[in-house]
Design a binder for these strands. Structure first.
Length: 271
DNA sequence: AAGTGGACCTGCTAGC
DNA sequence: TGCTAGCAGGTCCACT
């Protein structure tokens, strides 16, 4: 589910309300992708700091260490003063004096992992290979071009890998490539500098626009207050196989790359 | 080293 | 109506 926009929208929707809250209890459901890595009671009594995002991860600082959270494919966070009784897919509750932060995740590809800091331990290991943030001034056409030149996989797979730039998952990688007019099957090392310029700009623009629109709710994404996103209404190619292209008289196609669906318009996306 | 495919887990939908 | 195959927003890991 959650790509950078959904994670950022989630962060914005609860960070102000949980900051400064004291942890009073931690409740665990079924196992997530990795073990928590700390005895839950050790978190009790600690105050929550300012929530940060790195790629599709959220970092929840505590006084001693913090929690690195990932929403996987089907996770969402809710924050409320009073949360309903445990449902079958509620796997982590951080109960505080200001409300409860709850991770609901049917597929359990998500994670909540304790780490002594964001720069050491488990968090450092998980964040180590991430590429630049798309809104980092250092991420531009020159950087993208140089990084793509070293890779032979398709440009779509290079974007999804997250080692060059983080945040664009399957929806937004497809949308950015459409925006830039680039065929997703193009080998990374064949992307010219001008096209890398356009692609970098498209990635930033699409992700920023998606955050503005509250992310994409394809089926079940909600922010921490339960609000759905609306960017899916603006998607030009994702999920539109067989429908007419919004830009030319072609038809949107669905192919599979690296086991993932790719949507694109053969008419206006060129190699 | 970079590329590839499988693994993790559950729920929903289309098709028979 | 009911079963089944296929598909889904991510990413780690083992293997070539």
């Amino acid at each position: 589910m959650p790509e950078l926009p959904e994670v950022e929208v989630t962060r914005l929707s609860f960070s102000g309300r949980i900051e400064g809250a004291r942890v009073t209890a931690v409740r665990l459901g079924k196992p997530l992708r990795w073990p928590l890595g700390v005895a839950p009671e050790r978190l009790v009594g600690q105050t929550v700091g300012r929530v940060e995002r790195r790629g599709k991860y959220l970092w929840l600082p505590l006084e001693r260490g913090g929690l690195l959270m990932h929403l996987g494919m089907s996770g969402s966070l809710a924050f409320a003063e009073r949360v309903p009784a445990h449902g079958p897919h509620d796997h982590f509750d951080l109960v505080t004096g200001q409300g409860t932060l709850r991770l609901t995740d049917p597929r359990r590809f998500g994670a909540v992992v304790w780490s002594p800091s964001a720069e050491s331990g488990a968090a450092a290991k998980l964040l180590a290979k991430l590429g630049l943030e798309p809104f980092d001034p250092r991420f531009d056409g020159a950087h993208l071009h140089a990084a793509l030149r070293k890779r032979r996989v398709s440009v779509k797979q290079a974007l999804l890998g997250g080692a060059i730039v983080v945040g664009a998952g399957n929806i937004y990688a497809c949308e950015a490539l459409f925006e830039a007019g680039i065929d997703p099957r193009t080998r990374s090392d064949r992307i010219s500098r001008p096209r890398a310029d356009r692609l970098a700009a498209a990635i930033r623009a699409i992700l920023a626009r998606a955050v503005e629109r509250g992310g994409s709710t394809l089926r079940d994404f909600r922010d921490a207050h339960g609000a759905a996103g609306e960017f899916q209404l603006e998607a030009r190619v994702y999920g539109r196989a067989g429908q007419g292209c919004v830009r030319c008289d072609g038809t949107v196609r669905r192919i599979v790359q690296g086991g993932r669906a790719t949507f694109f318009c053969p008419g206006c996306q060129r190699r």
